[in-house]
């Protein structure tokens, strides 16, 4: 691995209409999870792109991105890992051969690491994958889980840029926790409240510019707990339905008419199947 990345500093540039960005400077540290929020077209992807390219006032946004305190003026190879919903596996080979190929391309001895990646993938994904499964035939959720596990273990890039993790049967919270626990800087553009609140800090984008930087407050921490509980409940219900069970049944979770999910105790007209 190359040099340690302790800090990324973003120096504000201009918005789409040419005015100065509201945020003049923001700093992101090792182990941080940062989310970028804002409507489509507000400039989230462009900010990710500025970070990836280490903008020096030469991109359309006129931003500058500084590594550590400026002693690195260029990413060394493979310092930035990227993940987006548009990414697919295209190599036609079994999971373990693929991981071996990736590990050997990075000069890592492969056996224990392959097991680690597959184990991690199966913690992230509801449907386990096998070492001999072909990577191109994995489901969307399995592919995404494998990509994340692979970035965490084999890629070893100190910075991970994510353009939305979809809710496709993977544990998104665990994914972010794993990446952050590996000491990476994780920057995620997202529309998902759960992901947004998972980050301690979020950058609000507006009209191509960084508009606000918000720290998660106490109230939001409570809301996050509720969201996590709701997400767990939804995934239980999702699994039941996907496994061919009826949603309605003893002790199972249903949504009541006010929209929240709760356990159904007995026959009651208060509930409807969701």
């Amino acid at each position: 691995m190359g040099k340690d990345i302790r800090k990324i500093t973003i120096i504000g540039g201009t918005t789409k209409s040419g005015g100065k960005e509201a945020i003049e400077k923001t700093e992101i540290y090792k182990g941080d999870i940062i989310t970028l929020v804002g409507p489509t077209g507000s400039g989230k992807s462009e900010l990710l792109s500025d970070i990836e390219q280490l903008a020096r006032g030469d991109t359309p946004s006129n931003r500058a991105v500084i590594l550590n305190d400026g002693e690195l003026n260029r990413w060394e190879r493979q310092m930035v890992a990227q993940l987006s919903q548009a990414m697919n596996f295209v190599l036609d080979m079994p999971v373990e051969d693929f991981l071996e190929l990736h590990a050997s391309s990075r000069g890592i001895s492969s056996n224990p690491i392959i097991e680690e990646v597959i184990g991690l993938t199966n913690r992230l994904s509801g449907e386990p994958i096998g070492a001999r499964d072909n990577i191109t035939s994995l489901s969307g959720g399995q592919s995404r889980a494998l990509m994340i596990a692979d970035i965490a273990v084999i890629s070893d890039a100190p910075v991970v840029l994510i353009d939305e993790i979809e809710n496709a049967g993977i544990n998104r919270l665990m994914a972010l926790e794993i990446l952050s626990a590996k000491g990476k800087i994780v920057i995620v553009a997202s529309h998902d409240p759960l992901i947004i609140l998972m980050a301690q800090k979020r950058i609000v984008m507006h009209n191509g510019g960084m508009f606000k930087v918000l720290e998660r407050n106490k109230q939001e921490e409570e809301i996050l707990k509720e969201l996590i509980a709701m997400d767990d409940e939804l995934s239980v219900l999702r699994d039941r339905l996907r496994m061919g069970d009826f949603a309605r049944g003893g002790g199972m979770l249903l949504m009541n008419k006010s929209g929240s999910v709760e356990e159904k105790k007995e026959e009651s007209s208060n509930f409807e199947i969701i």
Binding site: R77, Q78, L83, M87, L91, H102, M147, S155
Partner: peptide
């Protein structure tokens, strides 16, 4: 076309190029 394949494939691909042409800027 790195935007549509996985990080792992980008890294493997890049490595292949480095092996064929170690002196090149990639």
């Amino acid at each position: 076309k790195g935007d549509i394949v996985s990080q792992a494939e980008r890294e493997v691909y890049r490595r292949k190029m480095e092996m064929v042409n170690p002196g090149a800027e990639i």
